[in-house]
Design a protein around this nucleic acid. Structure first.
Lengths: 138, 138
DNA sequence: TTTAAAATTGTAATAATTTCAAATATGAAA
DNA sequence: TTTCATATTTGAAATTATTACAATTTTAAA
């Protein structure tokens, strides 16, 4: 993912008025590349923004997604996660430690059948398994 | 997906006692390849099984997943869907009509970096866009 | 049959998300 | 500046999805 120098400018260029909350939430997303849930974002930011409302986190993330600077990650059915890296890349979730790892992949030679004339907007690739760390722990 | 001749036998072979509800729910999954949600399954089956409880649908699907004869599909964050085809295949969701289409793909030449020594258990590929039908409707 | 275990059910509890109206902040125009 | 309209944030309540759990029913073996 390309480096973002200035969050305020980045938001403005995306057509988002850079309010304090929006800046903090987006900074959180790019600093913690752990694909956080709404709850994680809220819990981690409230100490610094005591007035923060969880509704604001929901609103803001939805807005970011609409504006195309954040993507939703649905690896698990009980947790919606968010990623400020909107480029096409894969996510690996370790079923032992729960960590989520980014990875890149070629989507050119997937050799997809059946949907040849469909218009593709987004590609999501999720892999579940055991990460190297947890494999070695045994 | 391979044809299942006899649901009762299929469940038994998977180590699942073939109760009436389980048979009906699994039959529903393989007859309606529309990747239903719990609610769809419940609403459609209740007329035929008036005593059916939504908890049973949840329990049963979780059991199917544990036993490996059903997989969870998380394309959208607000709807957990289920698929009796547990082979690795992709899902395309049309953002216009909401239909979900199955497709096959090669996972051999994804050329995945970063997670080379990880143990892969499941691969999920989700694509969103506009299906041929909806493209032509314009 | 009797009985123990398994499966189903309905209710209540929990968790995630949305709705909505009130409060606050912002920024342009006077 | 002050005023005003608009955008944003907030908190409470409502909604929805899911889980927990105890009671009931079913099943199948003894």
């Amino acid at each position: 993912m390309k480096q973002i120098q200035n969050v305020k400018n980045y938001l403005t260029e995306a057509g988002i008025k850079p309010s304090y909350q929006r800046i903090k939430i987006f900074e959180y997303l790019i600093e913690n590349m752990n694909h956080p849930t709404v709850d994680m974002i809220y819990k981690d930011l409230v100490p610094y923004i005591p007035t923060l409302s969880k509704t604001t986190v929901y609103n803001t993330l939805k807005f970011f997604v609409d504006k195309g600077i954040t993507q939703i990650i649905n690896i698990e059915d009980n947790e919606t996660r968010y990623d400020a890296d909107t480029s096409t890349h894969g996510h690996f979730k370790c079923i032992k430690c729960g960590n989520i790892y980014d990875f890149s992949f070629d989507n050119k030679n997937l050799n997809i059948k059946q949907i040849e004339n469909f218009e593709i907007k987004q590609i999501h690739l999720y892999i579940k398994g055991i990460c190297e760390n947890c494999k070695n722990k045994k």
